[in-house]
Design a binder for these strands. Structure first.
Length: 421
DNA sequence: TCTGGGGTCCTAGGACCC
DNA sequence: TCTGGGGTCCTAGGACCC
């Protein structure tokens, strides 16, 4: 077994830079939806001490003081760049599993005729040349060890962005003794704290714990992590992308919402977008859930966080069906006297491909399907949201998200192509 | 003033049934 | 007076990830 993990450096910040080279060497941060938190930082921004996930209002001073470049997130751009990076890696290594928008695992076992480190360095160079995105690559006998190696590749410049875990056990243990327990993939800060209380400070300490004990005090996932650190693979490599199990569309509101109609508009909009996305993927949902929440940070205000769900029978992706059910649930959840901050819709019990129809179908499904096709085509051509149900609001949406610093969608909108004059 | 969104999996406990 | 135990299914909550 031999895996590589290729991970794009500071991915979102890097994407912003690829199209605006004048941002080179300047601190750049990318914000979450609603421009709320920092979700990506260039190296310069990290060096300033801006933390991952930090609310942006907490680093206003730093931003001003150091001329930090601020961008709203531009997922259309990042997703497209991600596709290009993966396509380039595939030219070099045919067996890959896409793990996230900026990471892929590669199975190197079928390529053992070649030196793994050389292969990864060549891959890295090609990705940089073809896409402008620098990646770091870690190599190891399990996914968890490849993750460890990736961290080392990224943090120690002398490895020039590619690092392979030592095959010799005692050498490997020496490396693991330098990895803090909560820097291990799969150990978050809560488990990290619990491990420390048990005297487990490093990845090596975890390897030395009896696996049964890890299983008993934590769970089977933690045990797998411990075994993988010891070189025993527990996480499968699966190159075929699995179908999703749930699909969520939700947003915090730019302003708090106290009006039932406005809340309903938001729910309608999320339901519409969720159904659209599901159709795009060729699925149907058997269950629908709607949730609404107040602002959990406002401890001075009354709090409320509720959800309701219903079965969709037969399973469907038809907007009017999902929409009317969602609105009905939303009306039941509504209670006046609260300032709502977020609403969302979740579709679950998804099925893809051929689906059994209902025995006593009440709707004309062929007609629904034609209608949805036409709607999707119009929105694809005219821009998403051009055609949308009246329930999601006709006027300016005062609950809409803030996005004050979005860069152009250079690669996915003709009108926003970069110009070279 | 201002605090993201979208996923996965596991486990404990309750409901229900025999 | 005295009220089992095991299996299954479902859900909520908690942990993790990017």
């Amino acid at each position: 077994m031999m895996y590589a993990l290729a991970d794009c450096n500071n991915f979102y910040a890097t994407c912003e830079r690829v199209f605006q080279p004048r941002l080179e060497r300047r601190p750049v941060i990318v914000l979450s939806n609603n421009d709320g938190c920092v979700v990506a930082r260039s190296q310069e921004a990290k060096d300033l001490g801006i933390r991952m996930g930090q609310p942006v209002f907490q680093c206003r001073d730093l931003i001003k003081q150091h001329g930090v470049v601020v961008r709203s997130s531009n997922y259309a751009l990042y997703e497209d760049m991600s596709r290009r990076v993966v396509a380039t890696i595939l030219e070099c290594i045919p067996d890959v599993e896409i793990y996230s928008i900026d990471e892929v695992f590669c199975d190197l076992a079928p390529m053992m005729g070649r030196d793994p480190e050389q292969l990864c360095r060549m891959t890295r160079a090609r990705v940089l040349q073809w896409t402008g995105v620098p990646v770091s690559i870690g190599i190891g006998p399990t996914k968890t060890l490849a993750k460890v190696a990736n961290r080392i590749a990224k943090k120690n410049p002398e490895h020039e962005s590619v690092y392979r875990m030592p095959e010799d056990t005692s050498e490997c243990h020496r490396v693991l003794s330098s990895v803090a327990i909560d820097d291990v993939w799969g150990i978050g800060h809560r488990w990290g704290r619990r491990f420390r209380q048990m005297g487990v400070e490093t990845a090596l300490d975890l390897v030395r714990l009896p696996p049964r004990q890890v299983r008993a005090r934590f769970n089977i996932i933690a045990m797998h992590t411990a075994l993988e650190l010891a070189g025993i693979p527990c996480n499968d490599f699966d190159p075929t992308p699995a179908h999703r199990r749930t699909l969520v569309r939700s947003r915090s509101f730019g302003k708090m919402v106290e009006d039932q109609d406005v809340l309903s508009q938001a729910i309608a909009s999320h339901a519409t977008r969720a159904a659209e996305k599901l159709r795009l993927e060729g699925g149907v949902a058997g269950r629908l859930m709607v949730f609404i929440q107040t602002n959990r940070f406002r401890e001075d205000l009354p709090q409320r966080s509720v959800s309701g769900s219903c079965e969709l029978l037969p399973a469907t992706s038809t907007t009017p069906v999902i929409l009317s059910e969602a609105l009905q649930i939303g009306r039941k959840l509504w209670k006046p006297g609260f300032a709502y901050k977020k609403a969302g819709v979740m579709l679950s019990e998804l099925a893809f491909g051929e689906v059994q129809g209902g025995l006593f179908a009440e709707r004309d499904e062929a007609r629904d399907s034609r209608l949805m096709q036409i709607m999707d085509q119009i929105n694809a051509r005219m821009g998403s949201g051009s055609l949308h149900p009246a329930a999601s609001g006709l006027k300016r949406r005062d609950w809409a998200m803030r996005q004050d610093h979005r860069s152009p969608r250079y690669t996915t909108r003709w009108s926003e192509l970069p110009r070279t004059v």
